[in-house]
Simulated assay, not measured.
Amino acid sequence: MTPRWPNGKTFAFTLFDDTDLSTVANTGPIYELLTSLGMRVTKSIWTHNAVGKPHVGGDTCEDPAYRQWVLDLQRQGHEIALHNAADQSSERARTIEAFARFESWFGAMPRTTASHSGNRDALYQGPERLSGMRRALYNILTRRRHVGRFQGQEERSPYFWGDLCVGHVDYVRNFVFQDLNTLKSCPQMPYADATKPWSNAWFASSEAATPAAFRKHVTIDAVKQLEAEGGACILYTHLGAGFYRAAQGGFTTGFREVIEYVASRPGWFVPVATLLDHLRQSAPDARPYPLTDEERRRLEWKWLLEKVSSGKTS
């Protein structure tokens, strides 16, 4: 059953902003726009600088000016989330310190997180997302290059932090789907998965990692359909990946127009954790939905087949 959104709103829409490539210069104007439109979203951060060369780049909260900007976003009502400790693999001691820094700076532990895909401390990523023949097929398609790579859930690994995740984080991102209505793709969220015990609850999201993906999936027609379905979108994106380029005149083609259209509609525009709390409270016992084996198979097949169709199985 489609949840009834608060205050007579007809649909829900939010973003999980992966901090890859993020700087104040390239994402600050985007947050100014979102805030001015009454939209509150989730901004992830790194607590530590990389030692040596980072995987992809972007500012971290070790930079006092960047940290102050993120604190200002939090005061404006945006949620701050964790994207692992750093833009490189982090062993357990640094992840422990990351949680301590996060709490010290932001006043509480992160409620949501998404793993940085290049990190060995990523939690249940790559083939670990899947089970049975789906995992076997994924390993064939990727030529087994990710087997054993992601170890955040492995208790014997120096990169293990699953117990910290269970102890501090409410919601962890898993599958990303192409449909703008995330709730239609994953009506069970937030859900608990007995095969992945180092997370209290999982959530899915909708694909908009780059400006090109945004233009493809987040159209005005797709937003109209989302509203007609009374659905919920958790848009997974990298706002630092070229959505705003001052040297090229500002916002990338179509971004501002679509976001302003979304904001003009009677949607509920709250951060990811707030949206997931509402879905969770709609359940009979306010607990994460216990995913069944059949539901897990369906989610895994849907994610894998969409990856294959897009040519992206990494």
Rank of each mutant, 00 (worst) to 15 (best):
T274E: 15
T35Q: 06
R280Y: 05
F99P: 01
V169Y: 05
T42L: 08
Q248P: 07
A65Y: 07
V270N: 01
Q178H: 14
P127V: 02
P3A: 11
I45Q: 00
I234T: 07
Y138L: 11
L141Q: 12
H116W: 01
M1Y: 12
T113I: 14
L235V: 10
A212V: 10
D72F: 05
A212F: 08
R280K: 15
D18G: 06
L276D: 03
A12M: 01
L226G: 01
P54Q: 08
R173G: 03
E155F: 08
F214W: 11
L37D: 03
D18E: 10
T142S: 12
E229C: 12
A122L: 06
S131I: 04
L183M: 11
S90E: 01
K312N: 15
F106V: 05
F175G: 03
R4N: 13
A50I: 05
F160M: 09
A273W: 04
W161T: 00
I234Q: 00
A263F: 09
I259P: 00
D221I: 10
R75T: 13
W198I: 07
A12C: 10
L183D: 00
T95M: 15
D18K: 02
A241N: 11
M133S: 13
T10C: 03
L37T: 04
M1F: 12
W105A: 09
K53G: 08
S115D: 04
A65R: 13
T219P: 01
G107D: 12
I80A: 00
L183C: 09
E295Q: 15
C165S: 12
D170H: 08
Y236T: 10
H168T: 14
L183R: 03
R134M: 07
Y31K: 01
A247I: 07
N200L: 14
M189S: 01
F102P: 00
S282P: 04
R215P: 01
